[in-house]
Design a protein around this nucleic acid. Structure first.
Lengths: 259, 259
DNA sequence: CATTTTTATTGACCTGGATCAATGTCTTAA
DNA sequence: TTAAGACATTGATCCAGGTCAATAAAAATG
């Protein structure tokens, strides 16, 4: 069972769910934990590296202290030096218009890379904030570049990550530009479901670590619309919610409603 | 003057404008033209390569025959092998929902890379179509990867390109999610202006190679809305149009109206 | 614990931009 | 040069989803 890989068997299912990825958060107590013994390794750097390469990589990766809910990881215009990998918890990034309007561009979960849009321009373009108690690993970009010269697979991995985020953004463009409010919300929930299941969690039932406001903003909707949609989707027997917990009742039906 | 670099002095300004980048299109007659003598070189691969490296690169780059208006460069689900660089003309990419609804995700002009979102998944995710008579260079991705191991600057350039497209998409997300119809159109026109001026063309006056329908779709609007906006912007003395030609009258004022 | 603040839900109403419809203007081709 | 199709403009009307307002329910704070 995949989830055994992530689950500490002293914890109950309920404990595990709140806060999200709490089991991984425990890693925080061992800042110097090496990549090879990290629960996220297969998600984070699926490279098949030799032991020597891996320990060299370990040396340049800094495991940072934890972030509290709402704490800022980076802000726009600050100089880009590192790509961050979520170790535990979750983050959102927002981009701002001149007059202060903000768009939530992405959410990030364990094993995902934050800040890759800053490589061009060498400064961050967005603000990254923790959605809950969270921690990250820091990948110093320049040193990563040096490494890539000797480990071609690492270079490929970085390009693939960039390309994956690009794909996700293009799909979000389709949602924002062409989908109805309901289709947007369903697409969003299905994408979360997918990502949670890749991490060994249930595809059917999960905690939303972001607020209704964050979801609404991300999908170009009003908070009230998102709230009403959750109500409607429950009336249609497609899902149930209890606060931040969502249970998808019929994945196949949901997929038919997402365009 | 920068534009001298691009302009064949036997051509008048008017001839140069229609079709866009016609001067560069002439390159098509010399398919084997080397990178070092290509007018796009400084845009395409600003690497500062040694002569030896450059001629190796030349060997793997295939200069393809021309594409007619509306002709398809690639389609979704076809296997990814190459990144395309626009040599002359222009292209659009669209991504489709299951029911056929399409979103125009990007437009591409000379020196820009198409298809980088396909690296992850190793298959194209969108359809790329020529907007006018156009041509491309083909960069075989695998061989490019091999090269990158020996030319670190090439690897960096690829990452930067990916990151740049990511940045552009995040800005488009802000437009689609948070801006009014007028702000969307102005932001779009200013981004085109910027890109044309980087290519040595006027930032104030240029040809739209895409239809009103393409613009509307790209910005999540109806064709009629785009048409009405052009009328309004002319009434506000911010620009003039004559068919596909747009002249921006007051860049500073436009910037204040784009959010 | 109670209290304040933040976040979510629900209802009533309104509006920006979509849709429908008619007409005008470019392109393309024979 | 003309005819047919594609593309663009303009007006009239409509509606999905936004805004405003009032609670309600959590969550943070002391």
């Amino acid at each position: 069972m995949v989830s055994d890989f992530f689950m500490d068997n002293k914890m109950t299912q309920a404990q595990m769910i709140t806060p999200l990825f709490q089991d991984l958060a425990k890693v925080e107590h061992h800042h110097q934990l090496a990549c090879q013994s990290c629960a996220l390794y297969r998600l984070c750097l699926p490279l098949g590296l030799h032991r020597d390469d891996l320990s060299k990589l370990d040396e340049i990766i800094k495991r940072s202290a934890g972030f509290k809910r709402h704490q800022i990881l980076f802000e726009p215009a600050s100089t880009f030096k590192t790509i961050f990998v979520v170790r535990s918890g979750s983050f959102k990034t927002t981009i701002s218009a001149a007059d202060g309007r903000e768009q939530v561009t992405s959410f990030y979960f364990p094993g995902e890379f934050i800040g890759m849009d800053a490589i061009y321009q060498q400064r961050y373009l967005s603000t990254a904030r923790a959605l809950e108690a969270s921690s990250v690993c820091e990948l110093p970009y320049e040193r990563l570049q040096e490494f890539s010269a000797t480990i071609p697979e690492l270079q490929n991995q970085l390009m693939t990550r960039l390309s994956k985020e690009l794909s996700a953004d293009k799909n979000l463009l389709l949602s924002l530009g062409k989908k109805t409010a309901q289709e947007k919300l369903i697409s969003f929930l299905l994408s979360l479901s997918q990502r949670f299941s890749e991490r060994g969690y249930s595809a059917m039932s999960f905690q939303l670590t972001m607020s209704r406001g964050d979801i609404a903003n991300h999908l170009g909707l009003a908070i009230e619309t998102v709230s009403r949609l959750f109500t409607q989707l429950q009336e249609q027997q497609l899902l149930t919610t209890q606060g931040k917990e969502v249970t998808l009742l019929d994945l196949a039906a949901l997929k038919q409603h997402c365009g």
